[in-house]
Design a binder for these strands. Sequence first.
DNA 1: CGCTTCGAGG
Length: 723
Amino acid sequence: MSSCGITLQQRPCRFFWPYLFFRSFKFEFCYSNPHHFGNNFYHSSDSPGSLEFLYASLLEKSTERNHLKQIHSQLYRHGLQSDGFVITKFIRRGCDLTEVEYARQLFDEFPEPYVSLWNAIIMGYSTHNMLDKVVDMYWRMQRGLVSPDPRTFPHVLKACGGLAAEEIGLAVHAQIFRHGLEGDVVVQNGLVAFYVKCGKIDRARVVFDGLNRKNVVSWTSIISGYIQHGHPVEALRLFRDMRGSGVKPDWISLVSVGKAYSDIDDLEQGRCHHSLVMKMGLEFEPDLRIALTSLYAKCGQVMAAKSLFDQMKVHNVILWNAMISGFVKNGHAIEALDLFYEMISKDIQPDAVTLQSAVLATAQLGSLEQARLMDFYVKNSQFRDDVFVNTALIDMYAKCGNLELARQIFNQISNKDVVVWSSMIMGYALHGLGKEAADLFNEMKHARVSPNNVTFLGLITACSHSGLIDKGWEFFNSMKEFGIQPSQQHYAGVVDLLGRAGCVEKAYNFITAMPVQPGVSVWGALLSACKTYRQVALAEYAAERIFALDPLNIGHYVQLSNLYASSRMWDGVAKVRVLMKKKGLNKVLGCSTIEINGKLHAFRMGDKTHSRSEEIYNKLEWLETRLVECGFAPDKESALHDLDEEEKEAILCNHSERLAIAYGLISTAPGTTLRITKNLRACVNCHSATKLISKLVNREIVVRDAKRFHHFKNGSCSCGDYW
DNA sequence: CGCTTCGAGG
């Protein structure tokens, strides 16, 4: 006899209490007539009409723990307190209402839970990302000799992947094999995702290839796997295969594919992708729109991204992050910060990613005042101890010219990882402090943190910028002891190290002995050494290589041209100029900014647009006179930063940084440190002039150029004339 | 079962 029949016939008088519940929960169908259940037509526990079914329906309508408890207390009256079907429903509903603890309590009270109950609680933990609990329950289940079923495995695999618990996952794989679940696409998809998360993309591929009926989740798992492991091209190839095999993409798969296009920075394909999304009618899927916004932002189409952003109805934090980080990536620091402040003013809570992007924007801006504000904001937020945000803060303070504050942040971080150490070392490199970088590296080894390729890049750069040739060379050679392959950047760093110190020949020999083909950066380092030491023939050779590899980068042409000019080889200058014209390249104009009272003032060379222009030029003239009195004689040959303007260039040097300095002098109190940010590298003349100015006016002047920091004080510069 | 924002440099 069915449980339904027994229940209803034995306890008919108690029957109408669920009816009251129905009323109070506005249930859509109301069994007002108890006789409706009087027949024995329904006979399985999950058919409508059974008491179990009524419980299940009630549970679906409950919205809080107290409802659940109320209903649960009724179970004893019906002798259902140990009914697996009903308790399973209770556990599931409890988990849905994020009452996982309560669900667990119900589970624990159940005398001998069988597989459905285990699955319910495991699923609950899994959906709330309590992954260690999932693994724990799985282990208990094994010990209780309850055999898992196909519904158990996906959650356990998700947990193993999330915890990077490779060994456990492998054991689960073996168990899946023993269960003969090769054909279960959901379980196998779980395996694919597990191997992806453990970094075993090849094994994931083997599982994927073994599936004879792949669904859209199978394809998305392997495609996103390739994207996460830096193979967007293979991912896109698989996406084509997927469409060829007739599997229709859903919005989640399109999110992944969008990321692949942004990774290969292919705007054209990205636009095609957008039209595919529209063709499939998925353009209003919120998360897909976020992915598209991010795609446009990363491909440099900031305005397109912004218009998508503005069109979105719901602005969640991920969308804001995509937009803010998009601005930062494309060098629009001010827009990024504007957006950040807009977000705060709208009371949208930033998360760690938002703060990180905002800090990066501040670093780009180079304003120390803004940096302090940002630091203050972070320190008063719940992300004050977030290692990502703090790493960005170190970088920010270093790039805003204050290494002491960078170091303070560094010191306060507990559990410093390799990125934290590397950032601080990079900070020292930026300021040309080789010894400090090397000391920090010793501390790092002491703390038993393994260096990576960036650590060494920082060390070599730091040595190079402070003339520590032997030390830098030593660092380069010690890389292999740490099992790190030198990259092009490291080779370029060594060429820079040797070349800067005047060993141009040695640098060239080093290049010819390289085990890999030298790239643009390596030849570029040689070219700039040749420029400094006026080695025309070798420079021409290097330039030839560079132009073949990277014909559209203006910087190299300018450098070669400047070398010709400083060697009075005017036909060479003309030749380069023709070459640049032919390629349609325009020089980047020098621009310097100075922050006065929280406002940025930007100056171009010869700029007369500033409202206090007259005062600025008066001050400049005054400075120039004083400089000449001190015996300052500009080196005309190397002052040819702007070739078109060279004839017009009077004794008065009007390079942008000098305008910024002059403005700083007339608008701040005596003794105030001037902080200037410049988009190009400092020219020799301005560098020596600034040294003298710092002494003349008794001011510290901090200049961030395109490559590094210069701290001018009392007639000398922290770079030791070595940059 | 699968997805989107993200740190040090170039």
